[in-house]
Structures are given as C-alpha cells and as structure tokens.
C-alpha cells in the first residue's frame, strides 16, 4: 500500500483545484482529488465474464468488492505488464467505488484558475473525449479526466439488457 494513501483525508479544506496526477506512458493525467479515496498496489483481480474488456474484474478492497478498470485499455492504448509501480487509484463516482489501474502515481498538484485550458473539441485520440480541462502548471501539461464522462458508458443504467 502506498504512502500517499488517504490523501483525501490529509488535505483539508477545498480540494476542487487539487488534482492527483498519474502516468500512462509519458503522458500525465489528473484526477480530481476529492474523488480519490485510496491508492494501492495491484491486488489479485478476479475476472468476471460478460463485462467490457477494459473492466478487468473485481477486487477485494478491505472487505468491499470493487470493480477495476484498466485506464490503458479504456483509452485504447497498448496494455503493458503490471509492475510494482502499477497502482490502483480508487475513486468514488455516484457513491460507488471504482479502481483505476494506472502505470504509476505521480503527486498532488494545485492548479491555479489561470492555468486551465479547454481540451480540443475535434480530433485527438480516444482519451481526449474523457477530458475536462488541460492544465499547464509547473512546466508540465496535465490532462484532467472528467470522471462523469469517463464512466458514462458504465453508468448508463437504462439500457439494461434483456430479461
């Protein structure tokens, strides 16, 4: 378990401008910090049939059963072998916990309001449609993920298949 665990409880006050950054290859992505509840090294994952390939299965998070999504697969990037740097970031969406597999976790950054730009509307790759903003801060470019968009496909509850 990582030492960054429970960042959310360490940081007090308004967290809306704070992001947890992580790597996929060379690219830095950001997640809204208030959604993050935990960061762990890869636990054993039990595959579940009948779900999209980017959901790797379910894992046991302190007695809770949590689905795990491989962000690489979701972004249509090549899957790589999990290493000891590979992490699961557990986020909360609509009161549900979901684990996100990422290459490695970087750090928490505070983004000033003037450092945001909007993502390009057209073109770009699979990952761009899940972005909320792009932040230029500290000489780095961070692609901030919009969790609502990211999970939209799975949260679409009204298309439950046949009976």
């Amino acid at each position: 378990m990582s030492d960054i665990q429970s960042v959310s409880t360490m940081v007090e006050g308004d967290m809306s401008d704070r992001y947890l950054t992580f790597f996929l290859g060379e690219t830095i992505y950001g997640l809204e910090l208030f959604r993050v509840v935990d960061i762990l090294t890869i636990p054993p994952i039990t595959p579940v049939p009948g779900i999209p390939s980017y959901i790797k299965g379910v894992t046991n998070l302190r007695g809770k059963i949590v689905p795990v999504i491989d962000v690489r697969t979701k972004f249509n990037q090549m899957e790589i072998e999990y290493t000891d740097k590979t992490c699961i970031i557990v986020v909360v969406i609509h009161d549900m916990q979901v684990g996100l597999i990422v290459d490695s976790v970087s750090d928490v950054v505070t983004v000033e309001p003037n450092e945001f730009t909007n993502p390009p509307e057209f073109g770009g790759n699979e990952s761009n449609k899940y972005l909320s903003t792009i932040a230029h801060t500290g000489g780095r470019i961070i692609l901030n993920i919009d969790c609502e968009k990211f999970f939209a496909n799975d949260l679409d509850m009204f298309s439950i298949g046949g009976i």
Partner: peptide, 24 residues
Amino acid sequence: FPVFLNKYDIKGYGLSGCTILGDG
C-alpha cells in the same frame, strides 16, 4: 456484484454474486 456492474448481464453467465475467500 458491485452496483457499478449492474449494467452488465453477469447473471446471464450463471453467476449470482461474489464472496471473499479466506485468503482475501
């Protein structure tokens, strides 16, 4: 199963739920 997976027809694969084994 986690609520998150409700959309998917896991039960259609002959599975009804999960359990945590002794080794976690």
